[in-house]
Nucleic acid binder design. Structure first.
Lengths: 159, 159
DNA sequence: GCTTTACTATTGACTACGCAAACAATCGTA
DNA sequence: TACGATTGTTTGCGTAGTCAATAGTAAAGC
């Protein structure tokens, strides 16, 4: 039986499959409920969240795409949906006619608030029942190093 | 400006977005290379891996689906592809005529070996350059608790 | 001033799933 | 032994996302 080569228990293997499983488990659960209760995908919600926090509640599509890790075309289609639903509007940039802003509408703001109320609670419950505070901090830190460094210097943001 | 409610820094939030980012980053990279170099998706590869380790290199579709976290229909379509490529064959079960086995072919075995050689190296390099051994163990353990318990009663298997 | 290069956004074609429905086979129970 | 409930698999349809190609705009070199 020459197949033992592939039955591997390396640390990388364990961490990798754990990442796949944890991601699938957690997002499956949360996205099912977010969709059922509010008709949003997780990406939809994450986009709306960034817009709420953005100055004047508007962002360029490119920047939005980068923040939620979608491609340019992915963001276009996602925003198409949010636009159709009336949660965002498009606006043009006076100084650069290539860019199209996504602007959160009042309906959109109401929607995020409504969705956030339940989604955050579900998320914190899902994570909180499995991991305590210290572990969550540790996990976020380890995952953060895998996820690349857009905000790699959180010097003063120490919880 | 009443929107601070949504600008949240809870531990759950940090861990959750870190999970999303890490998963996207890691799988994006690895799956792109696995596809480019071997024409397989990560799920394809994971399925082939389970088959290699399975007794007689065969598994029921249901069990396969559960192990790689796909739905029944997902596994059907995935195996369709692997079958078309000649990496697995279907076989029936003499004692239960509902079940269809997926059986790894010799070509399939060769393929996993070939793919494993590069994929494992890439995976370990990706993880290993960001996290040391102790951190990988810690990460796998934390993620394992989020990923639910297929092996939740490891009475004697206590690490 | 042009021309080349780089950036932003959209579209078409495709893929990897999921869900719900359908169907066959098996099991439990009476 | 008949019959409802459960299990294993497949299929139709829908959806979120990717990549490659396109086009318009902006910036840089000369």
């Amino acid at each position: 039986m020459p197949s033992q080569v592939l039955i591997e228990q390396s640390l990388g293997a364990q961490a990798f499959v754990a990442l796949l499983r944890a991601h699938a488990t957690v997002t499956r659960e949360l996205s099912a409920r977010l969709d059922a209760e509010h008709g949003l995908t997780i990406s939809d919600f994450e986009v709306l969240l960034r817009l709420v926090a953005a100055p004047e509640r508007r962002m360029r599509r490119v920047d939005l795409a980068q923040e939620v890790l979608l491609t340019a075309s992915g963001i276009t289609r996602l925003l198409d949906g949010l636009e159709r639903a009336g949660f965002v509007e498009r606006d043009s940039c006076p100084t650069d006619r290539r860019v199209v802003y996504a602007v959160l509408t009042d309906d959109g703001l109401a929607k995020v608030r409504e969705a956030a109320a339940t989604h955050f609670a579900q998320r914190d419950e899902l994570l909180g029942t499995r991991l305590d505070d210290g572990e969550l901090i540790e996990l976020a830190s380890l995952l953060g190093r895998l996820g690349g460094r857009d905000d790699a210097a959180p010097c003063d943001a120490t919880a």
